[in-house]
Design a binder for these strands. Structure first.
Length: 106
DNA sequence: ATAATGACTTTCA
DNA sequence: TTGAAAGCCATTA
């Protein structure tokens, strides 16, 4: 399998995250068929062009925490998520039990 | 081919 | 609960 396909797969998975929900880097990697490549997901999202159709803001760190990153996008991400209805608790944490992606299984 | 880097995660003090 | 350290893995230099 070519790496270009894996990149596409990751972008596809991120694009599948429903509005108002979030997924962790690790989850995205696993669903893209690349377990253990959480960092790769972050790397790819960071290489996306500014105006990208990919909802990168729906990808957060483990435990529903916004991961610090170069630039001031972290703040933007939080704002966008709040606009989609995602609630942030104290300390800026997201309750994955309610806003996580694969929570419908209940 | 070796070394450094990073939008990650988990473990331990 | 918070912060530091190590583990992991593909990309870059």
């Amino acid at each position: 399998m070519k790496q270009a396909d894996q990149y596409a797969e990751i972008r596809a998975v991120v694009g599948t995250i429903p509005r108002g929900r979030v997924a962790t880097y690790g989850e995205v990697a696993r669903m893209a068929g690349l377990p253990g490549r959480a960092r790769l997901v972050g790397t790819i999202l960071g290489r996306l062009e500014d105006p990208s159709p990919i909802p990168w803001h729906r990808v957060v760190g483990a435990g529903g925490r916004i991961r610090p990153r170069p630039g001031s996008g972290a703040l933007e991400q939080r704002v966008m998520l709040e606009q989609e209805g995602v609630e942030f608790g104290i300390r800026g944490r997201i309750d994955l039990g309610r806003f996580g992606w694969e929570v419908d299984a209940l």
